[in-house]
């Protein structure tokens, strides 16, 4: 019912965007960024249709291309539903997270790369030993806010399924469940109890990240 969304390969995209060689990087930057400006409702309207069961939808066309049967993505199985949810929220926050990595990458002094190049480090070694440590605080920060955001997900689940009813309630996130109990059935006590549990979960997530990386709130301070 709940799951964190972790897509950290955005780091790679950030590297590309920061590289001066890449053509038109400013244009790409703003294009990738636009989804973050839209509300979840607009995104949901599109993705409901995107993942719908018709055989002409983009996803199902791709499936047909691969020789697989068309699916009713939003209702089929647990996995496809979660994929739909994850994809929707990834689409929205991709640009933002790329920008975080970008700002981190810009703080790495270029001399380090030159020095490593002179010493004969390969591209992978340079990435592993210079770029990765350089963006580590941001990596932790982004992972935290994504897990946090995944646990707090509400709008995606609310919009993707009509009137937020799914067979078996598999597409329901914690927050939606709380919302439904509190304001749908007016079972405030139960909903409050769940809120407390959610709060504890989120705090645990926070502390795990802070402790395990031993950087305090370095991600926030930057």
């Amino acid at each position: 019912m709940c799951f964190g969304v972790k897509v950290n390969h955005r780091c790679a995209a950030g590297v590309l965007l920061n590289n001066k060689l890449t053509p038109l990087r400013n244009v790409f930057r703003s294009m990738i960024y636009i989804p973050a400006l839209t509300s979840i409702i607009v995104a949901g309207i599109y993705f409901r249709l995107f993942f719908a069961g018709g055989s002409d939808t983009p996803v199902n066309t791709l499936m047909g291309f691969l020789g697989l049967p068309a699916r009713e993505w939003l209702f089929d199985t647990k996995i496809t539903r979660i994929l739909a949810l994850v994809f929707t929220s990834t689409w929205r926050w991709l640009g933002m997270n790329i920008l975080y990595f970008l700002s981190a990458l810009q703080t790495i002094p270029p001399e380090l790369y030159d020095a490593a190049y002179v010493d004969g480090a390969s591209a992978w070694q340079r990435f592993r030993h210079i770029t990765l440590p350089g963006v580590k605080p941001i990596l932790i920060f982004v992972t935290t806010i994504l897990t946090y955001g995944g646990l707090r997900m509400f709008g995606e689940s609310y919009v993707l399924w009509p009137r937020s009813k799914t067979p078996g309630d598999i597409g329901v996130t914690i927050v939606l469940y709380i919302y439904r109990n509190a304001f749908g059935y007016f079972d405030m006590g139960y909903a409050s109890a769940m809120s407390v549990v959610l709060f504890v979960c989120l705090m645990v997530v926070n502390f795990i990240f802070i402790k395990s990386f031993g950087i305090g709130s370095g991600g926030e301070k930057r």
């Binding site: 707090r152 927050v175 709380i178 509190a182 405030m188 409050s192 809120s195 959610l198 709060f199 989120l202």
Partner: peptide, 13 residues
């Protein structure tokens, strides 16, 4: 640190 989602019930009241 406190997420607003956990506050929605008390705030509503």
């Amino acid at each position: 640190m406190i997420p607003i989602e956990t506050l929605m019930i008390p705030l509503y009241n």
